[in-house]
Amino acid sequence: MTLLDFVNFHVVPGLVLGSIYALGAIGVTLVFGVMRFAHLAHGDLATLGAFVALGVVRFAGVGPWQALPVAMLVAAAVAIGADRLFYEHLRKRPLILTVIASLGVALMLRSLVQVGFGVDPQSYVRGLVRPDVFFGIRVREREVLTVLTAFGLVAALGAFLAYTRWGKAMRAMSDNPDLARLSGVDTRVVTALTWGVVGALAAAAGFFLGLNTELRSMMGWQMLLPMFAAAILGGVGRVEGALLGGLVVGLVEETSVIFLPAQYKSATAFVILLAMLAVRPTGLLRGKVL
C-alpha cells in the first residue's frame, strides 16, 4: 500500500469520522463534567437531530445545510425538555438513577424517529458524489465541510467557555458546583444552557454522520460507544480533550480495517475505552473520574 492509498482510504475517512465523534464526545464530556453522569441518550439525540434535518429537507425543500441550524435548535430544545421532564426531579437522588432515566429517554427518542421515518436507511441527497482530487488525495466537498464545521463549532464553544460570563459559569459549575452556587451562579440557567449546547452539538454530529454515510434509526446508538471512548480518552470534562479523543478514535477505527475484519471496526472504540480505564482513567488531558 502506498502512502497515498493510506491517506485516501484511512486518514481522510478517519478525520471525517473523528470530527463527527468529536462533536458527539464534547456533548458527552459536558454532561459528564457539569451534570456529572453518563448520558446514555446522547447517541439517540444525534439520531433525532439527523432525522429532524431530513424532515426539514423533505418538507421545506431546502438543502441539507439550511436544515442543519433548525435541527440543532430542535435537538437543543428536546435536550432541555428531557432534562426538565425526566432528569431534574432525580437530582436529589443517587445520580445513577439519572443514567437509568437517560436509557429510557434513548429508547423514547429512537422509537419516535422510527414511528416518524420508519427503519429503512435514508439519505439527504440522492446519487453518488464524485470526490475531487488534490495532489492525488481524493476528498469530497462534504468531507472538507464536515471537518471545517466541526472545528469551527469546537472553536466557538471554546471561546464561549473561555470568554463569556455564562461560559465561565459553566466551567465554574463543572469544577465545583457548591462553590459556583455560593458565588451566585444561577445553576438552573447554566443547566439549561448546558443541555442546549449538548443537544445542538449532538444534532450536528448526527447530521454529519447522515451526510457522509446514511441515516439509520440505530446510527446514534451505535455511535454512543466511540463517543464515550473519545470523551474518556481525552479526559472527562475537557472540551479540547474530547476533540483530540474523537479524532484519535476516528482514525484508529478507520485504520483498524487494515488488520481487522471491517465489521469489528466499532470494537476498537471499546478496546480504547477499556485500555484507558485500566491504565489512565483520567484521560490524556487529565480530566475527572466519577
Binding site: 453518563a38 443514567v99 460507544l225 471499546f270 477499556l274 480505564l277 466519577l290
Partner: peptide, 17 residues
Amino acid sequence: RFRSDYLAIATIGVAEI
C-alpha cells in the same frame, strides 16, 4: 473501581461486540 456510569458504558460495549 469507578462509579457505575463506566460499567454502564462498558456493558453496552460488551453487548455490542
